[in-house]
Simulated assay, not measured.
Amino acid sequence: MASAREAALTRRSSSKVTDAAPDDDAIVSLLEAAARVADHASLRPWRVIALRGAARARLGEALAAAAGLEGEHASRLAAKPLRAPLLLAIVAVTTTHPKVPEWEQEASAAGVGHVLSLLLDEAGWGVMWRTGPYTRHPVVARMHGLGEHERLLGWLYVGGRIARPRGDRDASIAAGRFSSLG
């Protein structure tokens, strides 16, 4: 088993994947670990929705409708969710709480999505986080069956990893993004 640091350093987005995908039991098992993210007041302000098969096509139709597109442009946008056999919608489920503002609840939900992507990658699956301008559009929310206090954060596109070199990333990324106040 890789360390958390090793998993983070070796993770790469997989823009192309095969038709293989983890089953629901495997996803639930990984979510048991991902659910351990920071969660002020233990609100569990998230849920994950698996989209497979025809649900991906319905999402594509919802995206095209949200964009107001028709014809070839609509078809191109509608085909995007078909790029992976499994899409995991990461949803923030917020509640009014005196100590935990909504932004913090959304951050916790995003943390679950990120840790889940690391765990999927470590398990050998190809994963890519995707969002877009229609992620929070009402048509897209209805397609997912979201409630009044639920907001879609994006999708993890998941499939079989295509063998590829996992080259080194620039090790100096953090140097320009870190400061220390004394």
Rank of each mutant, 00 (worst) to 15 (best):
D121V: 01
D168T: 14
V93H: 13
R130Q: 04
G132N: 11
D168R: 15
V127P: 00
V100M: 00
G113I: 01
L153A: 06
G160N: 10
A174I: 14
M128S: 08
L116Y: 08
H137Y: 06
L153D: 07
L156S: 01
L116C: 03
S172I: 05
M143P: 03
L152G: 00
Y157N: 08
P101S: 08
E148P: 06
A123M: 11
G145P: 03
P138E: 14
R151C: 01
G159L: 10
S108Y: 02
Y134I: 07
P133M: 13
I162N: 11
A171N: 06
T131V: 05
I90G: 04
Y157H: 15
G147P: 04
T131H: 05
A163Q: 10
R164T: 12
S117C: 11
T96G: 12
G167I: 04
M143D: 09
L118N: 10
E150V: 06
W125N: 13
V91M: 07
H149Y: 08
Q105G: 11
I173T: 13
M128A: 05
M143T: 09
E148L: 00
T131C: 03
I90V: 15
G132H: 11
D168G: 14
T135M: 01
R169N: 09
R164K: 10
H97W: 02
V115Y: 01
K99G: 03
V100R: 02
I90Q: 02
G126Y: 02
L156V: 06
G145S: 09
T131F: 04
V91F: 04
P165W: 11
A89D: 12
M143Q: 15
R151N: 01
P98R: 14
I90P: 01
G132T: 11
D121F: 10
G147W: 00
T95F: 05
A107G: 09
L116N: 04
D170H: 04
G113R: 01
T96F: 09
V140P: 02
D121M: 05
R142I: 05
G113E: 03
R164N: 12
V127N: 00
G160M: 09
A175E: 14
L119C: 10
L88W: 06
T131M: 07
S117Q: 11
A92L: 00
G176C: 03
L119Y: 02
